[in-house]
């Protein structure tokens, strides 16, 4: 596509929609105490299992109803965004840094380094990731830190595999030979030529991984291995909602929608960014 064609291409709907939703979630997470109508931990047994506002029997002020302990569902979802996004940003960034570095090094230097990295990736690929993360958290103990460590320790290979493959492709291209002939050092070529070309892929994968991290955190909360059960997490709310699904569907539905849209937004945002910045397409 020529430079001309790119200028005509507007920002895609995909980026606008997914970016807007992510912005809403980030604002909710940052300003949770100002936005949330109630204390997410406040229990009131007189207000338990209130339906959302449009259903008869609803109590004013509790827009999305209350859960089995009378806690406000909307406030818990807003506060839940904090934990979801913390895990998403920290774990995905850590996995990205470790995995991309390993992938770049393995793909560029090849030889025994590549052999070792590839064998480690093979071994990691032999475990079901969900079971692996549950096991790791059980071993290192529950809590936010453990969740982040577990996700990083498991998902770095996603970056490693893709970046390694990308680097292998890049290093076979002509421009690398030209750079070498021009006297650039190997490290210089890696940092200045190979890395920028692998960047769109890494960025897309990073956004995708944030969505995956949100899901893994929710799964760990669901099996009660994330942070303490009182703290509002989307996964924890879903786990509770699953048990009272026949009496109070809203306890499950609303956190599920939040999770659904957030995961979808992260992956679409990543794809949108890649389409926009891919040097080949550009």
């Amino acid at each position: 596509m020529s430079e001309h064609a790119r200028h005509r291409r507007p920002v895609s709907w995909r980026l606008i929609l997914s970016g807007s939703w992510l912005a809403i979630v980030i604002i909710c997470a940052v300003f949770a105490p100002y936005i949330a109508p109630h204390d997410p931990l406040a229990q009131d047994l007189l207000l338990e299992r209130l339906p959302p506002f449009w259903v008869s029997g609803a109590e004013p002020g509790y827009y999305l109803g209350t859960d089995g302990l009378g806690r406000d569902v909307l406030s818990r979802i807003i506060y839940g965004a904090r934990i979801a996004l913390t895990v998403a940003f920290v774990a995905a960034t850590a996995a990205c840094l470790i995995g991309s570095t390993m992938g770049l090094v393995a793909g560029y230097f090849r030889g025994w380094l590549d052999q070792i990295v590839s064998r480690i990736v093979d071994i990691w690929m032999s475990f079901p990731p969900v079971l692996f993360s549950i096991l790791l958290v059980a071993v290192i103990g529950t809590g936010l830190h453990s969740v982040i460590i577990a996700i990083t320790a498991i998902d770095w290979i996603r970056f490693c595999r893709v970046v390694r493959a990308e680097t292998l492709v890049q290093t076979r291209m002509d421009y690398i030979d030209s750079a070498r002939a021009a006297g650039f050092s190997r490290l210089n070529i890696l940092v200045r030529e190979v890395f920028p070309n692998a960047l769109p892929t890494i960025v897309a994968l990073l956004s995708l991984e944030m969505g995956i991290a949100v899901i893994v955190e929710a799964i760990l909360s669901f099996v009660n291995l994330s942070i303490s059960t009182d703290d509002p997490t989307w996964g924890g709310m879903i786990a509770e909602g699953r048990t009272i699904i026949h009496f109070a569907w809203w306890v499950l539905v609303f956190p599920l929608i939040a999770l659904f849209l957030t995961v979808l937004a992260f992956s679409q945002f990543g794809e949108g960014l890649r389409d926009r910045f891919d040097p080949v397409l550009r």
């Binding site: 969505g211 539905v253 659904f260």
Partner: peptide, 29 residues
């Protein structure tokens, strides 16, 4: 395709429980 691909099995499972298990109970949950 894009939606089915970006949303993992865990969420599809929950959505199915709600739709075909509770709202319109067709299958056992």
């Amino acid at each position: 395709n894009g939606i089915a691909l970006s949303v993992p099995d865990f969420l599809w499972g929950l959505a199915l429980i709600l739709l075909l298990g509770v709202a319109w109970p067709v299958f056992e949950i």
